[in-house]
Structures are given as structure tokens and as C-alpha cells.
């Protein structure tokens, strides 16, 4: 048996394995398969890098669009601010917190409401003979905010207000009619009085009977200054 097995190799090569050959065709197949695998391996990183690049571009694009959108928004806000600063908003935009600007004598119209920069000592201090108007209130401003109540009754339907802001921040004012539903803020009165300035304002239209609040708000600092209001039966009587 051992001898027979020792001849196994020669026997198999001369018979069973006679036509089994590893030749150039097989070698070629090996190299071909290897090159195909290599091509796949090099293609994959390329595809990944393309995908990553596209994702990056998309991401950067999104950021840029966001940036420009926010810039546009800022510009838009700035424009609004400028418009507000000019206090030239048309009637019906009374909720804008327009900041009043101008030297003494400057008149700004905001719809039916007329604002005028006046001298610091021009506040009415007491009722004087010969004037038709009544001094409704004269108060000192302090604290973070204040609401001054006043009434409109009978024939005294016109009102003129003075605000002297001696603080370091602008004071936002608004006029509120609490007899109206939801305590509506009256359009056109909401403005910001700059620090160190005195302004007067009145509406060309008569106020309806009711209870009003003139609101003063500063928010992040204490107010300092004075405020006064005169009511009169006619528009002309406010300045008499």
C-alpha cells in the first residue's frame, strides 16, 4: 500500500490531473479580478469625497443664505428704525416706538398727533389767568415706569402733554383709553422722548369722554423729569 501511495502523485498527474492546468488564462483572470477590485476600492473613496464635498457645499450654502436673510432682516429693521427716527410713520402706525429727534422748535407730525420740541422751561407750572385750558396734571417722573391717569369729560375734549426727560435714557410714552375695550393704546401717541429733551404733543382731534392713562416706560433705568397735561374745550385754547 505504501508503495502504491508513493506513486499516487505520478499516477494522478498522468491521468486524473492531466488536463488540470494553471496557465496564462488563469493568471490573467487573477489580475483582472484584482484590478476590478482595485477600481472598486478607488471609486468608493471618490464617491465618498464627492458626497462629502456636496454636503459641505450644501451646508455652506445654507449658512450663506441664512446669513444674507438675517442681514436683509437687519437692514429691514434698520430701515424701519430710520423711518421710526424720522417719526414720519403714517397714521395708524401709532404702536411704533418712534424716537423724536430735532432741535427746539422742531415739529413732527405723526398722523393727527403733533409733536414739538420745546424749551426745557416751557412746562406749564400752574393755571394762570387768561388761559382757557385746565392743568390736568403736573408730575415728577421717577421709577422704572409710571401711568398717569386723567379724565376727559364735558366740553374739555382737547389735551396737550409735556414731557421733560432729564434722565440718561429715552422714555417711551403711550396714551391708553381704558374705557375702550381691551384698554386700547391710542394710535399716534406712542413715541420715545430722547434723554435730556423736552417735547410737547397733542392730537388735532378731540378725545372722547373717558378715562385715560399716559404711560411712561423706561424699563432698564430710573426715569427722571417732569410731565404735565392741559385740557381745553378747543384746539386753539390749548395754546392760549
Amino acid at each position: 500500500m505504501e508503495n502504491k501511495l508513493k506513486n499516487l502523485r505520478n499516477d494522478m498527474i498522468s491521468s486524473e490531473l492531466k488536463n488540470i492546468k494553471f496557465g496564462s488564462k488563469q493568471k490573467h483572470n487573477v489580475f483582472q479580478q484584482l484590478h476590478e477590485k482595485k477600481a472598486k476600492r478607488t471609486l468608493l473613496p471618490k464617491l465618498i469625497s464627492v458626497a462629502v464635498t456636496l454636503s459641505l457645499l450644501f451646508f455652506l450654502g445654507t449658512i450663506t443664505i441664512d446669513h444674507f436673510t438675517s442681514e436683509e432682516r437687519t437692514n429691514s429693521n434698520m430701515n424701519t428704525g430710520q423711518e421710526e427716527q424720522a417719526a414720519a410713520a403714517p397714521a395708524g402706525e401709532g404702536t411704533y416706538k418712534s424716537i423724536l429727534q430735532g432741535d427746539v422748535g422742531t415739529i413732527v407730525e405723526n398722523g393727527d398727533v403733533i409733536f414739538e420740541r420745546v424749551a426745557d422751561d416751557s412746562l406749564p407750572v400752574e393755571e394762570t389767568d387768561g388761559t382757557m385750558g385746565d392743568l390736568e396734571f403736573l408730575i415728577s417722573l421717577s421709577g422704572l415706569d409710571h401711568s398717569q391717569q386723567f379724565e376727559i369729560n364735558g366740553e374739555f375734549k382737547y389735551a396737550k402733554f409735556w414731557i421733560q426727560n432729564t434722565g440718561s435714557k429715552s422714555i417711551t410714552i403711550s396714551l391708553e383709553d381704558i374705557t375702550r375695550k381691551d384698554w386700547d393704546v391710542i394710535e399716534g401717541f406712542t413715541v420715545r422722548i430722547p434723554a435730556g429733551e423736552t417735547w410737547s404733543f397733542y392730537s388735532k382731534n378731540a378725545l372722547s369722554n373717558g378715562t385715560y392713562y399716559l404711560n411712561f416706560t423706561l424699563g432698564r433705568a430710573y426715569m427722571s423729569g417732569q410731565s404735565a397735561a392741559i385740557i381745553a374745550p378747543t384746539l386753539a385754547d390749548l395754546d392760549r
Binding site: K4, L5, N7, L8, D11, M12, S15, E16
Partner: peptide, 8 residues
């Protein structure tokens, strides 16, 4: 029928 093939 070959003996070597028998072994194989």
C-alpha cells in the same frame, strides 16, 4: 480498469 486509477 487501471490499477492506478483504482487507487485514485
Amino acid at each position: 480498469k487501471d490499477t492506478s486509477s483504482t487507487l485514485i
